[in-house]
Design a binder for these strands. Structure first.
Lengths: 265, 265
DNA sequence: TAAGACACTTTCATTCTATGAAAGCAATTG
DNA sequence: CAATTGCTTTCATAGAATGAAAGTGTCTTA
């Protein structure tokens, strides 16, 4: 089993490290910045926000454009269509994703709840797979959306047992991403996390009102970066009912954990 | 209006050009290679297939991994989860995509057919938006899938009026991508394309059996790179019926063309 | 069990790429 | 029409990216 662990991932890590592949790293920064914005960006804005010179930014954009990762209209740049085939490739071919689908289907069938798989990405998490249960969730399907680690069962369970030092970074990341108020503190976060000894997390009306959730991490050595969750609208489930699904969820998580053995990122 | 036009996009363009940003270009090659393969790749395979040394390939993978664009399990690499937020950002924020949805909805409502938007990417095209009509299409929704330019109405219309020189490259590209037999020729391709003077393309049983389609390019100066299509299963439409939707389609294409004015890539 | 083969990883000197200052354009505005 | 603003190109230089070769670990085979 390998443990490499480079950075906690994602940009925003200008901790003074030399960091190899400067031009590539910077290109990824530009790409990330384009995603952050919800509308096309001017060259000068991108350059300023990424802290690099205009010529450099322009050159990066041109290369990304050549590969369809970036589109340009007049003088504004945005994410390009090449991300679609990439996302499709991920969803269709990633071993964990493909393996989880039947597992989630089984759990959803047995419990009647909606079953989901989340992956940690930097200081956020994203929904990767969802299999609907009997009662539909009313909020829109946030597949691929950046969600907080600090809110919602599926996020919090990824933080259970993490050292304070790491949690402190998570707090900073959540604030930086706008998921939490600037006053958000380590103590507040720790109060939300499941008690030590509990291997699942529960949430009610946390990330979305009217939604209950239990989640379990897919564990391997070290901090987990994936979790599975059961979710249901309040009118279709009680806390008790949801928690009755925990054993099922535990079994599913164990099955997927085997597959993950060895995953570095 | 600007016309920059760097490369015909996508890798495979080792035409001896110096090409700026070598490390970034190579990183994109690695990323593309990972998508091409439908299962996790070993470092040595990636290095060989991309024509670069092991250390270089490794360094690229590590940076991409830091940004979640690549995942690693043991010694194998694959596309990472960060492509999902990127794809979501594209679909939610791209001006053409968001603008096209209501337009396609209107066309679908008026004609009862399925309405789609395609974008050219290199020597292929991808489905970006689809709004279903009355009769469901039986093949699975290929959103983000790489489809041939040389097959199907929505592909062929993007090639109408292109100079032979360009079509010859398209032929090569289609063969290289496995969309056409190695014997595929320029003459064959030209025979498929709509007659000069026609602004739409028609296809029956071309890319998928039992499916009829008409498509129209979203035109601006030069070669188009987007097209809109009406599609229907054979049992729900006739050639005549589909072609009756062409005026609607033409109006939709014109509306979207305005928006595209100035798009470089 | 030992020896060999294989694949990944690190190191390091060299090359050439990536970089930003500054000049050159183009477009927009007062 | 002049001035401002923002994009693009040029160019000399710094330093990043590169691959050969050595190093390390793991798996295979005798």
């Amino acid at each position: 089993m390998t443990v490499t662990n480079t950075q906690p991932s994602t940009a925003a890590d200008d901790g003074g490290k030399p960091s190899n592949m400067r031009s590539l790293s910077r290109a990824m920064e530009v790409f990330a910045e384009l995603q952050r914005a919800d509308r096309p960006q001017r060259l000068s804005d991108l350059a300023r926000n990424c802290g690099m010179s205009l010529p450099t930014t322009l050159r990066i954009l041109r290369v990304l454009q050549d590969f369809g990762m970036v589109s340009q209209t007049d003088k504004t740049y945005r994410i390009g269509p090449a991300v679609l085939p990439a996302a499709r490739s991920y969803i269709e071919n990633d071993p964990l994703v493909t393996a989880s689908r039947p597992v989630l289907q089984q759990v959803a069938a047995q419990t009647g709840m909606t079953a989901s798989l989340y992956t940690r990405l930097g200081f956020e998490r994203i929904l990767v797979v969802r299999v609907d249960g009997d009662a539909p969730l009313r909020y829109d399907m946030p597949l691929g959306k950046r969600l907080p680690l600090t809110v919602g069962a599926a996020g919090k369970i990824l933080l259970a047992g993490a050292p304070d030092e790491h949690l402190q970074e998570v707090v900073k990341g959540a604030v930086a991403a706008g998921h939490e108020e600037p006053s958000f503190s380590l103590a507040e976060l720790k109060a939300r996390l499941p008690e030590p000894g509990t291997d699942y997390a529960y949430s009610a009306d946390e990330r979305a009102t009217g939604v209950l959730s239990v989640a379990m991490a897919i564990n391997r050595s070290g901090l987990p970066s994936e979790s599975v969750a059961l979710t249901s609208p309040v009118e279709a489930a009680t806390e008790k009912g949801l928690k009755a699904g925990v054993p099922e969820l535990r079994r599913a998580a164990a099955r997927l954990a085997e597959l993950l053995e060895g995953t570095v990122y």
